[in-house]
C-alpha cells in the first residue's frame, strides 16, 4: 500500500493516459472506421455506390488486418508509427497504433449495423431524388445511429483493452502501470488497483454509451 501511495502520481497520470488513448483512438478510429464501413456498405452489390472492385479490395484488406492479434499489429506497424509520430514508444505512438488497428474492426461494426437499416427508407430517399452522398449523411447514418452507438460502446471497451496491451511496448497507461509498478515488483495491491480502475472506466463507458444509444433509439 505504501508503494501505491508513493506511486500515486504515476497512477493518476496512468489513468489520464489510458483515458487519452481510449478516447483519442475512439474519435480517430470512429471516424476512419465509419468512412471505411460506409464504403463497404455502399459499394456492396445492389447498394448506393455499387462497385464490385472497390468492395472486393476493401473487404479483403479489412479481412486480412482485422484478425491480426493486436500485440503483433502494434509491432508490425512500428515503421509507420515512427514516420507519423516520430517514435514507437509512448502514449502518442500507442494511440496511433490503436486508432489504426481499431479502424478495421470499426469498419465491420459499422457495415453490419448499416446492413440492418431498412432498405425501404433508402429507396424512399432515392425516389425523392436524393443523391447517394446525401442519403448516406442524412438518412443512412441517422437511421443507423442507435445500433451504431451500441457498436461504438462495445468498441470503447475494446480500446481500453488495446490500451492496456500497448503497455507492453511502453505505451503508458494503466496497463504499463500494472506491469512495471505491480507485477514486476510482486506488488499485487497495485495490480488489483489498476484492474479495479479499468473496471470502473469500462463500466462508466458502458453506462454513457447505453444512455446515448437509448436516446437515439427513443427507448
Amino acid at each position: 500500500m505504501n508503494d501505491f501511495i508513493g506511486s500515486i502520481d504515476v497512477y493518476l497520470s496512468a489513468i489520464w493516459q489510458t483515458l487519452f488513448m481510449a478516447l483519442a483512438s475512439l474519435v480517430v478510429s470512429g471516424i476512419l472506421g465509419l468512412a471505411i464501413g460506409v464504403l463497404l456498405y455502399a459499394t456492396r452489390p445492389g447498394h448506393l455506390l455499387e462497385n464490385r472492385v472497390a468492395y472486393t479490395v476493401i473487404n479483403v484488406v479489412v479481412n486480412i488486418i482485422r484478425p491480426i492479434p493486436f500485440v503483433i499489429f502494434l509491432i508490425a506497424i512500428e515503421p509507420l508509427t515512427i514516420r507519423v509520430i516520430g517514435t514507437y514508444i509512448g502514449v502518442y505512438a500507442a494511440t496511433f497504433a490503436i486508432a489504426i488497428g481499431a479502424s478495421f474492426a470499426v469498419a465491420r461494426i459499422v457495415e453490419q449495423n448499416l446492413v440492418g437499416v431498412d432498405p425501404g427508407v433508402i429507396e424512399a430517399a432515392r425516389a425523392m431524388g436524393a443523391g447517394p452522398l446525401r442519403i448516406i449523411a442524412t438518412v443512412l447514418i441517422p437511421e443507423g445511429l442507435g445500433p451504431l452507438t451500441l457498436g461504438y460502446t462495445f468498441l470503447f471497451v475494446g480500446l481500453i483493452d488495446m490500451s492496456a496491451q500497448a503497455g507492453v511496448i511502453g505505451g503508458g497507461g494503466l496497463g504499463e502501470y500494472a506491469i512495471t509498478w505491480g507485477s514486476q515488483r510482486y506488488n499485487w495491491t497495485i495490480v488489483y488497483i489498476a484492474v479495479a480502475t479499468i473496471i470502473v472506466i469500462v463500466q462508466l463507458g458502458q453506462f454513457v454509451g447505453n444512455r446515448l444509444a437509448r436516446r437515439a433509439l427513443r427507448r
Binding site: D118, G120, V121, E123, A124, A127, M128, V139, P142, E143, L145, A216
Partner: peptide, 13 residues
Amino acid sequence: IGMIFQQFNLFRS
C-alpha cells in the same frame, strides 16, 4: 414525382 409504399418507409430518426 411523389411515391408511397406498402411499408410506408418513413424515416424513423
